[in-house]
């Protein structure tokens, strides 16, 4: 198994609005994937399609080698937005429910985690702190021993300490079990440490996806005397551009070294890289002939 998630021209329409359109993705197994984009970009839609809670309007999505939502439900764990739990049920009830519903349930993982977190088995979930509820939801997700764990904005509602603890435990689970993870966030900083693969989703479209290391190694900010971006070598793809009357500053993607001595070349942080792609859709798209997805790997 080398592909955990594969989408071909995937789209989902609600009424007349496309929540996700023309999404083509190929995510290798064993990665921790960060799905980032502003609120309303279509992140949840993509994740719901991946776990089979939605059916595509167009195209196809394959998860762990099979069409999403069929027989692989036992192999996919899903922690929905805001890490929901059942308020009236106790911690122990949650574990019993998990054991009943999941054939691959690993009781030892569950009890060890609850013990280490110091959760009281008799406590109702509604009386736990936000961080503890998130950890309980994560425990349920991990203990079913999935091959793929999908988490929708798992840390958005958590304070910085709870956020760090959640990601620590998630990474520990990745190190222990052979687990692929897809997690969404509207903050790059949330995913920067933990993820090694990035998907940027803006306005229902995938703007870029790939190994974070590769993305960082192939994107540059270049600035120099003002010039038309059309005069750049064809191997340099302009992601964003801003011009003053004298100066041009561009974010470009290229596999080749930048030889033109007129440019001052610098590397981008992951956040700047994502912002460059996010800014791209809001700007009037003059060079529409450039395929938006050309940067996908």
């Amino acid at each position: 198994m080398n592909t955990v998630l594969q989408a071909q021209g995937l789209g989902k329409k609600y009424g007349r609005r496309w929540a996700l359109s023309d999404c083509t993705l190929d995510v290798p197994a064993g990665r921790v994937v960060g799905l980032v984009g502003p609120n309303g970009a279509g992140k949840s839609t993509l994740l719901h399609l991946a776990v089979g809670m939605l059916t595509p309007t167009s195209g196809s999505i394959t998860v762990l080698g099979e069409a999403a939502g069929t027989s692989q439900r036992a192999k996919v764990g899903f922690v929905a937005q805001d890490t929901p739990t059942y308020n009236r049920m106790s911690v122990a009830d949650h574990l019993r429910l998990g054991a009943r519903l999941n054939p691959g349930w690993d009781e030892s993982i569950a009890t060890k985690r609850i013990e280490r977190l110091g959760l009281d088995l008799k406590q109702r979930a509604g009386r736990l702190s936000g961080g503890q509820r998130a950890q309980l939801a994560l425990t349920l997700g991990i203990s079913k021993r999935p091959e793929l764990l999908v988490l929708d904005e798992p840390v958005a509602a958590l304070d910085p300490l709870a956020r760090r603890e959640f990601l620590q435990d998630l990474m520990e689970a990745v190190a222990e079990q052979e687990l692929s993870v897809v997690l969404s966030s509207h903050l790059v900083s949330d995913v920067e440490r933990s993820c090694d693969f990035l998907i940027v989703l803006v306005d229902s479209r995938v703007q870029v996806s790939g190994e974070i290391e590769t993305l960082l190694a192939t994107h540059y900010r270049i600035s120099g005397p003002r010039r038309d971006e059309k005069s750049l070598p064809s191997a340099q793809h302009v992601i964003s551009a801003s011009h003053t009357d004298r100066q041009s500053t561009l974010v470009i993607r290229t596999e080749q070294p930048i030889l033109d001595p007129a440019w001052t070349v610098s590397r981008l942080s992951l956040e700047d890289l994502v912002l460059a792609y996010m800014g791209r859709t809001s700007a009037p798209e003059q060079n529409n002939h450039r395929p938006v997805l050309e940067v996908q790997r």
Binding site: G30, Q168, M171, E172, R193, S194
Partner: peptide
């Protein structure tokens, strides 16, 4: 495992 549990970084 110890490093990722402490730093919350990717095991890779």
């Amino acid at each position: 495992k110890e490093v990722v549990a402490q730093l919350a970084i990717n095991p890779n």
